[in-house]
Amino acid sequence: MPSATAVIPNELGLHARAAARLVERANGFESLVELSHRDRTVNGKSIMGVLMLAAAKGAELSIRTEGPDQDEALAGVLAIVKDGFGELE
């Protein structure tokens, strides 16, 4: 099961809109997507979970995927995080 880490680059961090976009992306894959920040690990397909990470700008996010399309899922989720959820200044 592949994993990677990324730093959250956008000003507002993983706020509601960003979380909604991340979850939408994660739900496009069959694999399990897990996100961790500090000592909390949540389901990357659950907006409530993702919000509870309270990950601000600069926070380090670990992503782990497992399932039939795990590599694509990891790349897809990693890309949207690095892209600042489409809201980089």
């Binding site: 909604a20 979850v23 389901n43 659950s46 907006i47 409530m48 979970g49």
Partner: peptide
């Protein structure tokens, strides 16, 4: 909507 569709 994302909250509504959330499995939790």
């Amino acid at each position: 909507l994302a909250m509504l569709e959330d499995s939790s």
